[in-house]
Amino acid sequence: MAEKKRLKNLTFLEKMYIPEIVKGLALTLKQMLSPSVTMQYPEVKFEPPASYRGRPVLVQETNGTERCVACGLCSRVCPALAIEVQAAETELEKERYPQKFEINMLRCIFCGFCEEVCPEEAIVMSKDYELVFQNRESAIYGKDKLLVPVDELKDRIDFLRKFKK
């Protein structure tokens, strides 16, 4: 049998194993004594950075209307077909608004394509990572759950303005 080529030839001491084992044990012992990084989840909550892609939400302007014009690009780009939009006409200047905007959170894969493709900066990824539902129906989020006031999304919008081309 051909001798196997090793990345590195072991020295005698290394071949003895024991010094290496002691090194390993020393490392784990050091780790044992260093402080834990665990967050006690329900009591302490992780505050994600602006780059975090949580639940996609619709931006609600200060006057209460959504920015969305129901162009359907998010729906088209969504690789998981999670978004359904039904447009309708509005008297507002934007002409179109989403009469129905539904995201099926069971389908959503949090890829953020919808946010990336949105021409109106109307759908953004929020910091919300707590998604709980007990049946398929309630996993479909309508406008009532999706609309979030623009002030609460400032972090993400600033982030997008800085990095989204």
Binding site: C71, G72, A87, R96
Partner: peptide
């Protein structure tokens, strides 16, 4: 048909 649907849908 106005705003009923995007053509690609």
């Amino acid at each position: 048909f106005r705003f009923k649907s995007r053509v690609w849908e």
